[in-house]
Computed example of a mutant assay.
Amino acid sequence: MQTLPVRLRPGDDLRRALEAVVAGQGVEAAFVLSGIGSLRPAEIRLAGAEDVLKIDADCELLTLSGSIAARASHLHMSVADAQGRVTGGHVCYGCTVRTTAEVLLALLPAWHFAREFDPGTGWAELVVRRRGEA
């Protein structure tokens, strides 16, 4: 495992930028160990929901965690609004960094992450393989 601290800049799409950083390292699997910063807007899919909640206001990124892979990322976050109300859920594309996002990644160069449909859950779930395995 290798760690990589990353700072994302204003205007970056949080999820796309992290996926690009991991891909740019030539790695197919990574985890977010920690993430803080600010967003506007924040786009979150809540538990069990199909629609995306868009918070078009300044938000503090309190927590960020999950796995990252090309077309297979699964990230969760919690954000707080200006009144301190906290909302959390799945990170969607469209979360835009407002001032900064400071993220610590764990790169896993020996592994490959993918998502495959799991009939037991009804969702595309994480499949972990050693890199180079079919």
Rank of each mutant, 00 (worst) to 15 (best):
W123F: 14
I36K: 07
W123G: 07
V86A: 04
T96K: 04
M1T: 14
D12N: 08
F117W: 14
R16L: 08
R40V: 09
A124L: 11
E133A: 13
A101I: 01
L75S: 03
A57I: 13
G89A: 05
R9K: 06
H76S: 11
T3R: 09
L61M: 07
A30W: 03
S34V: 12
I68R: 00
V127E: 08
A114S: 15
G89L: 01
C59P: 01
I36D: 05
V6F: 00
W111K: 11
V52E: 01
G88F: 02
A42S: 06
A47C: 05
G122W: 07
L18P: 00
R15T: 06
P41F: 08
E102A: 09
L53W: 01
L4G: 00
H74W: 10
H74A: 13
A49R: 15
T3H: 06
A30P: 06
G26N: 11
F117I: 15
H76K: 10
G89F: 00
T121E: 10
A72G: 10
P5E: 14
D56M: 11
L126E: 12
R98I: 09
A70W: 10
R85A: 08
L64S: 05
P5I: 14
G120P: 03
F31C: 11
D12P: 05
R129P: 02
S34I: 08
A114E: 13
G48T: 15
E125Q: 12
D13I: 02
P41W: 07
